[in-house]
Design a protein around this nucleic acid. Structure first.
Lengths: 89, 89
DNA sequence: CTTGTAATTAGATGATTGCCTAAATATCTT
DNA sequence: AAGATATTTAGGCAATCATCTAATTACAAG
Protein backbone atom coordinates (compact mmCIF):
# COMPACT_ATOMS: atom_id res chain seq x y z
CA UNK A 1 0.00 0.00 0.00
CA UNK A 2 3.02 2.23 0.19
CA UNK A 3 2.94 3.00 -3.52
CA UNK A 4 -0.73 3.94 -3.27
CA UNK A 5 -0.18 6.56 -0.59
CA UNK A 6 2.96 7.84 -2.31
CA UNK A 7 1.01 8.21 -5.53
CA UNK A 8 -1.62 10.30 -3.77
CA UNK A 9 0.99 12.56 -2.20
CA UNK A 10 1.31 14.71 -5.33
CA UNK A 11 -1.36 17.29 -6.17
CA UNK A 12 -0.96 16.87 -9.92
CA UNK A 13 -1.63 13.17 -9.61
CA UNK A 14 -4.69 13.81 -7.48
CA UNK A 15 -5.97 16.19 -10.14
CA UNK A 16 -5.42 13.51 -12.77
CA UNK A 17 -7.56 11.14 -10.74
CA UNK A 18 -10.22 13.83 -10.44
CA UNK A 19 -10.21 14.23 -14.23
CA UNK A 20 -10.69 10.50 -14.68
CA UNK A 21 -13.51 10.44 -12.18
CA UNK A 22 -16.03 11.67 -14.74
CA UNK A 23 -14.79 9.88 -17.83
CA UNK A 24 -11.85 8.05 -19.34
CA UNK A 25 -9.29 10.16 -21.14
CA UNK A 26 -6.30 9.74 -23.40
CA UNK A 27 -2.83 10.66 -22.18
CA UNK A 28 -2.90 13.72 -24.40
CA UNK A 29 -6.24 14.93 -23.08
CA UNK A 30 -4.86 14.61 -19.58
CA UNK A 31 -1.55 16.26 -20.38
CA UNK A 32 -3.21 19.25 -22.00
CA UNK A 33 -4.90 20.09 -18.68
CA UNK A 34 -1.54 20.85 -17.07
CA UNK A 35 1.07 23.54 -17.64
CA UNK A 36 3.93 21.04 -17.44
CA UNK A 37 5.65 19.03 -20.16
CA UNK A 38 3.86 15.99 -21.56
CA UNK A 39 6.76 13.85 -20.48
CA UNK A 40 6.19 14.93 -16.91
CA UNK A 41 2.52 14.02 -17.06
CA UNK A 42 3.49 10.70 -18.59
CA UNK A 43 5.70 10.14 -15.58
CA UNK A 44 2.82 10.86 -13.22
CA UNK A 45 0.65 8.43 -15.13
CA UNK A 46 3.32 5.78 -14.70
CA UNK A 47 3.28 6.36 -10.95
CA UNK A 48 -0.51 6.08 -10.82
CA UNK A 49 -0.33 2.94 -12.97
CA UNK A 50 2.28 1.36 -10.69
CA UNK A 51 0.03 2.09 -7.74
CA UNK A 52 -2.81 0.42 -9.65
CA UNK A 53 -4.93 3.51 -9.21
CA UNK A 54 -5.44 3.83 -12.96
CA UNK A 55 -5.58 1.43 -15.85
CA UNK A 56 -4.08 2.09 -19.28
CA UNK A 57 -5.33 0.60 -22.50
CA UNK A 58 -4.08 1.24 -25.98
CA UNK A 59 -6.75 2.45 -28.37
CA UNK A 60 -5.14 2.72 -31.77
CA UNK A 61 -2.81 5.64 -31.74
CA UNK A 62 -3.96 6.73 -28.29
CA UNK A 63 -3.63 5.37 -24.81
CA UNK A 64 -6.77 5.61 -22.82
CA UNK A 65 -6.64 5.91 -19.05
CA UNK A 66 -9.35 5.01 -16.57
CA UNK A 67 -9.76 4.75 -12.82
CA UNK A 68 -9.19 1.37 -11.26
CA UNK A 69 -12.27 1.33 -9.11
CA UNK A 70 -11.40 -1.76 -7.08
CA UNK A 71 -8.26 -0.24 -5.62
CA UNK A 72 -10.25 2.67 -4.27
CA UNK A 73 -12.24 0.26 -2.15
CA UNK A 74 -9.04 -1.12 -0.61
CA UNK A 75 -7.70 2.37 -0.10
CA UNK A 76 -10.80 3.39 1.81
CA UNK A 77 -10.33 0.41 4.10
CA UNK A 78 -6.71 1.43 4.69
CA UNK A 79 -7.71 4.93 5.69
CA UNK A 80 -10.35 3.54 8.01
CA UNK A 81 -7.67 1.40 9.63
CA UNK A 82 -5.52 4.45 10.25
CA UNK A 83 -8.30 6.39 11.85
CA UNK A 84 -9.62 6.34 15.39
CA UNK A 85 -10.68 2.98 16.78
CA UNK A 86 -14.24 2.07 15.95
CA UNK A 87 -16.67 0.70 18.44
CA UNK A 88 -15.34 -2.69 19.46
CA UNK A 89 -17.18 -5.80 18.18
CA UNK B 1 -5.13 18.84 2.08
CA UNK B 2 -1.76 18.46 0.45
CA UNK B 3 0.02 18.19 3.78
CA UNK B 4 -2.39 15.45 4.87
CA UNK B 5 -1.64 13.24 1.90
CA UNK B 6 2.08 13.99 2.10
CA UNK B 7 2.05 13.03 5.77
CA UNK B 8 0.48 9.69 4.92
CA UNK B 9 3.04 8.97 2.23
CA UNK B 10 5.62 7.69 4.73
CA UNK B 11 5.25 4.19 6.22
CA UNK B 12 6.78 5.18 9.56
CA UNK B 13 4.20 7.93 9.95
CA UNK B 14 1.39 5.54 9.11
CA UNK B 15 2.72 3.16 11.77
CA UNK B 16 2.73 6.03 14.28
CA UNK B 17 -0.92 6.67 13.51
CA UNK B 18 -1.65 2.98 13.96
CA UNK B 19 0.04 3.09 17.38
CA UNK B 20 -2.11 6.04 18.40
CA UNK B 21 -5.22 4.34 17.19
CA UNK B 22 -5.53 2.26 20.35
CA UNK B 23 -4.33 4.76 22.93
CA UNK B 24 -2.49 8.03 23.40
CA UNK B 25 1.27 7.79 23.82
CA UNK B 26 4.20 9.97 24.79
CA UNK B 27 6.83 10.85 22.22
CA UNK B 28 9.23 8.48 23.96
CA UNK B 29 6.82 5.56 23.86
CA UNK B 30 6.34 6.14 20.17
CA UNK B 31 10.03 6.57 19.44
CA UNK B 32 10.95 3.35 21.24
CA UNK B 33 8.84 1.40 18.74
CA UNK B 34 11.14 2.31 15.90
CA UNK B 35 14.76 1.47 15.07
CA UNK B 36 15.54 5.04 14.09
CA UNK B 37 16.85 7.97 16.14
CA UNK B 38 14.48 9.79 18.47
CA UNK B 39 15.14 12.98 16.57
CA UNK B 40 13.89 11.34 13.38
CA UNK B 41 10.69 10.22 15.07
CA UNK B 42 10.28 13.70 16.47
CA UNK B 43 10.48 15.01 12.93
CA UNK B 44 7.78 12.61 11.81
CA UNK B 45 5.59 13.75 14.67
CA UNK B 46 6.07 17.34 13.55
CA UNK B 47 4.91 16.39 10.07
CA UNK B 48 1.83 14.66 11.44
CA UNK B 49 1.15 17.62 13.68
CA UNK B 50 1.45 20.08 10.78
CA UNK B 51 -1.04 17.96 8.87
CA UNK B 52 -3.33 18.11 11.90
CA UNK B 53 -3.49 14.34 11.98
CA UNK B 54 -2.28 14.23 15.57
CA UNK B 55 -2.50 16.52 18.56
CA UNK B 56 0.29 17.12 21.06
CA UNK B 57 -0.20 18.10 24.66
CA UNK B 58 2.44 18.61 27.30
CA UNK B 59 1.93 16.49 30.39
CA UNK B 60 4.61 17.47 32.88
CA UNK B 61 7.89 16.21 31.61
CA UNK B 62 6.27 14.32 28.77
CA UNK B 63 4.48 15.23 25.59
CA UNK B 64 1.45 13.15 24.92
CA UNK B 65 0.24 12.52 21.37
CA UNK B 66 -3.22 11.59 20.25
CA UNK B 67 -5.13 11.17 17.00
CA UNK B 68 -7.07 14.16 15.74
CA UNK B 69 -10.27 12.35 14.94
CA UNK B 70 -12.00 15.18 13.12
CA UNK B 71 -9.36 15.36 10.40
CA UNK B 72 -9.88 11.71 9.60
CA UNK B 73 -13.46 12.46 8.69
CA UNK B 74 -12.35 15.09 6.22
CA UNK B 75 -9.70 12.78 4.83
CA UNK B 76 -12.27 10.10 4.18
CA UNK B 77 -14.35 12.60 2.24
CA UNK B 78 -11.31 13.55 0.17
CA UNK B 79 -10.62 9.95 -0.76
CA UNK B 80 -14.25 9.50 -1.69
CA UNK B 81 -13.95 12.52 -3.95
CA UNK B 82 -10.97 11.00 -5.73
CA UNK B 83 -12.69 7.70 -6.34
CA UNK B 84 -15.11 6.70 -9.08
CA UNK B 85 -18.21 8.79 -9.50
CA UNK B 86 -21.07 7.69 -7.29
CA UNK B 87 -24.58 7.33 -8.53
CA UNK B 88 -25.80 10.83 -9.16
CA UNK B 89 -28.44 12.08 -6.74
C1' DC C 1 20.38 25.76 41.39
C1' DT C 2 22.41 21.63 39.61
C1' DT C 3 21.69 17.12 37.75
C1' DG C 4 18.85 13.84 35.06
C1' DT C 5 15.21 12.73 31.86
C1' DA C 6 12.08 13.91 27.84
C1' DA C 7 11.79 15.90 23.66
C1' DT C 8 12.87 19.19 20.07
C1' DT C 9 15.79 21.97 17.05
C1' DA C 10 20.01 22.63 14.16
C1' DG C 11 22.91 21.38 10.61
C1' DA C 12 24.67 17.94 7.43
C1' DT C 13 24.24 14.10 4.04
C1' DG C 14 22.51 10.63 0.73
C1' DA C 15 18.25 9.20 -1.59
C1' DT C 16 14.11 10.26 -3.86
C1' DT C 17 11.16 13.24 -6.49
C1' DG C 18 9.36 16.37 -10.06
C1' DC C 19 10.55 18.73 -13.71
C1' DC C 20 12.86 19.64 -18.12
C1' DT C 21 14.64 18.71 -23.16
C1' DA C 22 15.84 15.39 -26.45
C1' DA C 23 15.46 10.95 -28.36
C1' DA C 24 12.90 6.77 -29.11
C1' DT C 25 8.75 3.89 -29.97
C1' DA C 26 4.14 2.93 -31.68
C1' DT C 27 0.42 3.70 -34.63
C1' DC C 28 -2.02 5.84 -38.43
C1' DT C 29 -2.10 7.89 -43.10
C1' DT C 30 -0.59 8.48 -47.54
C1' DA D 1 8.14 3.04 -46.96
C1' DA D 2 7.83 7.92 -45.34
C1' DG D 3 5.70 11.47 -42.68
C1' DA D 4 2.65 12.91 -38.97
C1' DT D 5 0.72 12.31 -34.45
C1' DA D 6 0.57 10.23 -29.67
C1' DT D 7 3.06 8.79 -25.98
C1' DT D 8 6.91 7.04 -23.49
C1' DT D 9 11.84 6.56 -22.23
C1' DA D 10 16.49 8.52 -21.25
C1' DG D 11 19.49 11.54 -18.99
C1' DG D 12 20.21 15.42 -16.17
C1' DC D 13 19.30 19.00 -12.51
C1' DA D 14 17.38 21.35 -8.45
C1' DA D 15 14.31 20.76 -4.58
C1' DT D 16 12.48 17.97 -1.06
C1' DC D 17 12.84 14.21 2.26
C1' DA D 18 14.36 10.79 5.81
C1' DT D 19 17.92 10.09 8.47
C1' DC D 20 21.89 10.99 11.47
C1' DT D 21 24.73 13.30 15.43
C1' DA D 22 25.18 17.18 18.36
C1' DA D 23 23.32 20.94 20.73
C1' DT D 24 19.31 22.96 23.00
C1' DT D 25 14.99 23.60 25.60
C1' DA D 26 11.62 22.12 29.19
C1' DC D 27 10.49 20.14 33.21
C1' DA D 28 11.29 17.29 37.67
C1' DA D 29 13.79 16.04 41.67
C1' DG D 30 16.94 16.40 44.63
Amino acid sequence: MDSTFKALADPTRRRILALLRDRDRTAGEIASEFPIAWASVSHHLTVLKSAHLVLAERDGQFIRYSLNTTVFQELMQQILDLGPTRKRK
